[in-house]
Every structure is written in C-alpha cells, then in structure tokens.
Design a binder for these strands. Sequence first.
DNA 1: CCGACAATATGTCGGACTAATTATTGCCGC
DNA 2: GCGGCAATAATTAGTCCGACATATTGTCGG
Lengths: 253, 253
Amino acid sequence: MASKEEEAQAPAAGSAVQLTPSPKGSGRRLRGAVAHYLGTAIVSGRIAPGERLTGEVANAEALDVSRSAYREAVQVLTAKGLVESRPKAGTRVLPRSRWNMLDPAVLAWAFSGEPDLDFVRDLFELRAIVEPNAARLAAERRDKADIKAMKDALAKMRRHTLATEAGRAADRDFHDALLQATRNSTLIALSASIGAAVNWTTQFKQRARALPRDPLPDHARVFDAIVAGDADAASQAMRTLVDLALEDTRSAM
Amino acid sequence: MASKEEEAQAPAAGSAVQLTPSPKGSGRRLRGAVAHYLGTAIVSGRIAPGERLTGEVANAEALDVSRSAYREAVQVLTAKGLVESRPKAGTRVLPRSRWNMLDPAVLAWAFSGEPDLDFVRDLFELRAIVEPNAARLAAERRDKADIKAMKDALAKMRRHTLATEAGRAADRDFHDALLQATRNSTLIALSASIGAAVNWTTQFKQRARALPRDPLPDHARVFDAIVAGDADAASQAMRTLVDLALEDTRSAM
DNA sequence: CCGACAATATGTCGGACTAATTATTGCCGC
DNA sequence: GCGGCAATAATTAGTCCGACATATTGTCGG
C-alpha cells in the first residue's frame, strides 16, 4: 500500500511536474498544458475510467498552478466527455464509451504517446467508410473553385514530397478541398479530425521506413474522377487510396 | 455614442439576462447555463463567425455571473472549437468549418432553436453513409450478447410505441446495441452523437403529425439480417431505414 | 428503515496582478 | 518631407489568491 492509491496524479512528492517540457516553451497557455497533461494521462490509461482524480486544491498545488487554471483545464476535459465532476463526489474519469473520440484534441492526445493499435484500426475502418463516400459527393457537387484548390494542392504535393512538412501540408490541403466540395458540414468536421489523426500516423510511416509507395498516382486518380464528375470512379479510387494507406501503416507498426 | 455596436451579447442595458429560465431551475451548473447561452447564440448565428465577443469583465457583468464562471464557460466553447481567444485581440467566433459539429453539446445547441434545414440534410446524409456500413460490420462481428440486447430493445419498441418516451429510449437502445456490435470505438462515438441529434428530429416528426409509417418492420429486417450474419442484407435494410426516416423528417418540416 | 445533520469537495465570487499583443507614436534613414 | 522601423503605451485575456456558497454523500439518531 504505502498509500492506498490516492497518490495524486502528479508523480512523487518532492517537486512539481514539468509542464510543457519541450514544445516551444510557452506556446500554449498554462491551462492548455494542464489539460494536455491530464488528457494524455487519461487517454493513455494511466488514470483508468471510474477512478477519482485528486481534489482540486491538492492536484493544483501538485502541478504548481493556481486552482483557477486547473479548474479551467478540467472544464476542457469535461467538455470532451473525459471526466465528470460533482460536489462532494469529486471528479471521476468517465467510461471510454462517453469520450468524444472524434474531438481533434482527444485524437491528438491518443497519438501523443504510443498509439493503440486497435484504435488505429478503428480509425482506418471509419476512414474506409467515410472518405470514399465523401469523394462520391465531391464528384457530384464540385465547382470550378473546388477543382482549382485540389489541383493546386496536388501540384504542391508533386513538387515537395511527402517527406517534407510542406508536402504533408499539401496532402492535407487536398483532402480539405475535397471535403469542402462535398458541401456537407458534418463530413467536413468529421474528416478534418480524422485527417489530422491520420497525419500523426504518417509520421510513423516516415520514421519506420522510406514511404513504401508513391501515393501521388492514387491521388491523381481520385482527382481525375472528381473532375470528370464520375462519382463511382471517385469512390473506387478513394477506396484504394485508403486501403493502401492502411496497408502502409500496418506494415510500419 | 449611444453604442457603436458593442452593446454586448447580453440584451439591452438594464438588467441581466435570465439564465436557465425554465429547465428545472438549477439543474446544470451556472457555467453550464452560460455556455448554453453563448453556445446557442453562436450556433444560431446571432453572433456571426469572425465577430468579437464583448470583453470578459463587461460580458460577465452583463450576464450577472463572476468572471471565473464566465471564463470557464468560454473554455468549454473553446474546447468545442466555437471560439478562440488571445490577449489583447479578444475572443472571436471561429468560422463554421472549425466547429466540432459532431460534439453532442454542439448538436444539442444546434437543435435547441429552429433547426437549420440544410444542417438536418447534412446530418441525414452522414447517417446514410455511416449507419448502413455499421450494420454491415455488426452483422459480421455480433455475438450472442449483442443479439440479446438488440432483441430486448426491439421487444420494448414493439410494446411501447415511438409515441412514448419509453419507446424512443428503446429505439436508442437498439441502435446503441447495434453500434456496440461493430466493436469500433470511433463508430460508437460518432453514431452516439448522431443518434442523439436524430432524436431531436423525432420530436419534430411527432409534433407535426402522427408518425406516418411504422418503423418497426424496418428495424426487424435489420435485426434479422444481423442475426443471420448477412452483411449485405443488413446494410441494405439499414439504408432503407435511414431513407425512410429522412423522408418522414423532410415531410414534417 | 427513514429523516435530519455534518463533513467535504466542487462551485462561485471578487479583486489584484501578470503577460502578451496590438496600436500608437516618435525617431531615424532615405 | 516621406516611408519604414523601433520603442512605447494601452488594452485584453491569463493567472493567482483567499473566501464563501452550494450540493452530495455518508452517518447518526429517532
């Protein structure tokens, strides 16, 4: 025992936890750092669902921040469905089923450590469902501006490779433009989250080995089908694109 | 001056806005009420994207709450991507493309007033994409426990009708059980949000006219296909179910 | 077994001070 | 005199502190 189990969320006794250790000093605000700290702790399972967080005063002091800042951080977690707090009962971690997995921040936390393999599988499964249908809608509804945006992004992807940050940004732009062309706000929101998460995995692929396949032809196929207004072809092309991405990611992990 | 345009988010001058007017007095906490107030104001378009919120001190005073409570409410909005605040620049409403439309609370805010017709269309479009594929996965992966849960929910739906709250709860249970059977956490999170939103629309259907069609046979068809493990049939059955729901909702609005 | 009460942790409040960023102003160089 | 640049001032969110209010929960007593 040594201590029942309520040894606080902050390690040991001595000094406070080093918040925002590396990422460009004080980029995000203080409460953002606390939210990140607690968020990763929960998503990674270090604080299991159903468990109780240490009292505000104690935990805030352990993290060496004011109670206000700590509370605002907890509000963020509450807004994302990770925790729930009630007077006297304290703040408890909610079951995974109530987490907003689609939330960009939650996804980021999930990928900040060692990404859970099952979760990556789930994510690609969702992608395989949503993105081909998004491409289908885009093919039906795109206008000249959409085509231009996608064309530009594709050109940038060709110029820089996916090995560079600029190339990956162009990749995101391409998918973004495609989503915009669907004219569906929910699809935009959804795939924006997924796209960001997928980007984390791209780094893994990059790190593991030189990218095993040039994704450009696949993107071009999707683009051509959308320009032609061929919904079926666009869907099919996007499907193979996602499948290949899954294949690459799987082999890299 | 009278007031250039900075007449705050809270109406007029005189007295404060009536927060949490009807909903069971002080059910949700005070900051929850503020978040709801600001959230609906933004989602409904009363505060357009790009617009600046009144300063914290002024707005908090106008709402007759402490700055702490007001700030915690703003944190919630920030966590959901509705606003962004920087020192000196103030708090600005972000463009719709950055909102977390899938967030349950945002959906609730979107449906708390007059639901935007285009948004409902987007929602059903997403549903038409996701749910049939979810049914497909459920048919492939369901086990006995899943089948039992769905069977029970179906029985409850049959006993009570969709006109009663118990019946609608059973409907949700059915869809929930189906989602659980997919074994995909992202699908569960996604459709949980959608399902809740769809439930708001059900009330509209109910209010407009007696439900024009008995949805039970459709549900039964989905159930049978999943029990049989027939993925294609399950997908097809779910597709018609969603199509009919859209039809009903459309005619009711 | 049920109702009143006390303990406790979150919720709210108010004010003060800090930090970051924009706008302004004045200086310097062209 | 004009245009760009740097120091400066004003403004607004961010953080901190300490106190009190409120709502639950667990317990004690009827």
